[in-house]
């Protein structure tokens, strides 16, 4: 029976010492131990999270880098295209202008030639008239130096005149 009869002294000492142990260990051991364990776990958790974040950021950076590169390439292409267009436009305009200029010069030249030609013709005509008059004068002088000649002329002219 003694085996299952709790002794008063042992109950007293167990209660007292367990309470003291619980109180002291809570204050001096469990508190600091659990706190440091939690802190360590938190710091590991934090480190893992920040590593994950860094990885994500790296990826983001990489993708943004790529985007930037792509953008740069696109812009370069655009610039090239624009430059080409500008060049084409300039060249086209220049050609057009040159053609216009050429046309103008040609037409001006043509006009000038025409004018010159007309002037030359007019002059030639006047000269021809003068020469003809001279010839005619000389011919007349020669022809009309005799009476026969003068008569013939008059006859001739009269024959052409129609009297109606």
């Amino acid at each position: 029976m003694g085996l299952v009869t709790p002794g008063f002294g042992l109950i007293f000492w167990t209660t007292l010492s367990f309470l003291i142990v619980l109180f002291l260990l809570r204050k001096m051991a469990w508190g600091p131990i659990l706190k440091s364990l939690k802190e360590r776990e938190d710091s590991i958790e934090g480190a893992l999270q920040s590593a994950e974040k860094a990885k994500e950021e790296m990826e983001k950076l990489q993708s943004s880098n790529e985007a930037l590169l792509r953008e740069a390439r696109d812009e370069r292409d655009l610039l090239l295209k624009e430059a080409r267009a500008t060049k084409d436009a300039i060249v086209g305009e220049a050609k057009l202008k040159a053609k216009e200029e050429a046309d103008r010069i040609i037409s001006e030249a043509r006009t000038a030639i025409e004018n010159e030609k007309m002037a030359a013709i007019t002059e030639l005509k006047a000269e021809v008239a003068n020469i003809s008059l001279d010839i005619a004068e000389k011919l007349l002088r020669k022809e009309l130096s005799g009476d026969a000649g003068q008569q013939e002329l008059v006859d001739n002219m009269l024959s052409k005149v129609k009297l109606n």
Binding site: S17, V21, L24, M28, A29, P32, I33, S36
Partner: peptide, 21 residues
């Protein structure tokens, strides 16, 4: 015996707590 056990507990866990600090 209980006191001995308690002394052992204190020896162990105060050392452990100190290590954590």
């Amino acid at each position: 015996g209980m006191f001995l056990g308690i002394v052992i507990m204190f020896l162990i866990f105060l050392t452990v707590a100190k290590s954590y600090k």
